[in-house]
Amino acid sequence: MNFYSKPNPILPVSLHDARVEEISLRRGEKTLSGELTLYFPEGIRAEVEGEWVITGPGEVRFGGIDWDFSGIRCYEGDSVTERSFEEFSADLKESSWEIVEESYGYNRSVFAGYRYRDGFFRVEMEIYHFKETVYFYEDAPEEDMEDFSE
């Protein structure tokens, strides 16, 4: 009998409880040449010198986007609506989106969380991409650094 155990990698960054205030996108002229960037002015969680802290402002870039298999769904009451990335970018001028769940798999990143418009509603973003995800963030001011280690 053959056996393989897939490791469960723990990333040194997390978007859990991070607020997306803005997104930008570039569709690209060739297939899989687009880029999507999520902006987090309040920072993200990162492991710094063995401790989990909330960083200063940050952004996450996804490249090589396959737009045909990427999308945004909003769940309000009993209805589900699909939003384009352009529409969702405009929506963020009204209120931010807080990520609660994040999942990464074969060329896919999926985020789910909540926005507010006459009450909270769930938003899921699925990004199908073929280039590495790159996380950029500034150090938090020393007085703002909290330890989130378990």
Rank of each mutant, 00 (worst) to 15 (best):
S5L: 08
P7F: 10
P9E: 09
L11D: 06
D17A: 02
A18E: 06
R19D: 09
R19L: 09
E21Y: 11
G28F: 02
E29M: 05
K30C: 01
S33L: 04
G34Y: 03
G34A: 02
E35M: 12
L36F: 03
L38M: 14
L38T: 06
L38V: 05
E42T: 08
E42S: 15
R45L: 14
E49D: 15
G50R: 10
G50C: 07
G50E: 05
W52A: 06
V53Q: 13
I54C: 08
T55W: 02
T55Y: 04
G56H: 09
P57Y: 03
P57A: 15
G58E: 02
G58T: 10
V60D: 05
V60H: 06
F62Q: 01
G63R: 15
G63H: 05
I65F: 03
W67E: 02
W67I: 02
D68H: 14
F69L: 08
F69E: 02
G71R: 01
G71K: 07
I72G: 02
R73A: 14
D78V: 06
D78N: 14
V80E: 13
E82G: 04
R83E: 07
R83H: 07
E87Y: 01
F88W: 10
A90Y: 10
A90V: 13
S95Y: 08
S95P: 02
S96F: 13
S96P: 01
S96I: 02
W97I: 03
W97D: 00
I99N: 05
S103M: 07
S103F: 07
Y104E: 03
G105Q: 03
N107A: 09
R108E: 01
S109P: 00
S109T: 11
V110W: 06
F111P: 02
G113N: 11
G113A: 09
R115G: 00
R117E: 11
D118H: 12
D118E: 12
D118N: 13
G119A: 07
F120I: 04
F121R: 05
R122E: 10
R122C: 03
F130P: 00
K131Y: 10
K131P: 01
K131S: 12
T133L: 08
T133D: 00
V134D: 02
Y135Q: 01
Y137H: 15
D139T: 06
E142S: 14
E143P: 00
M145E: 15
M145Q: 15
E146T: 08
E150T: 02
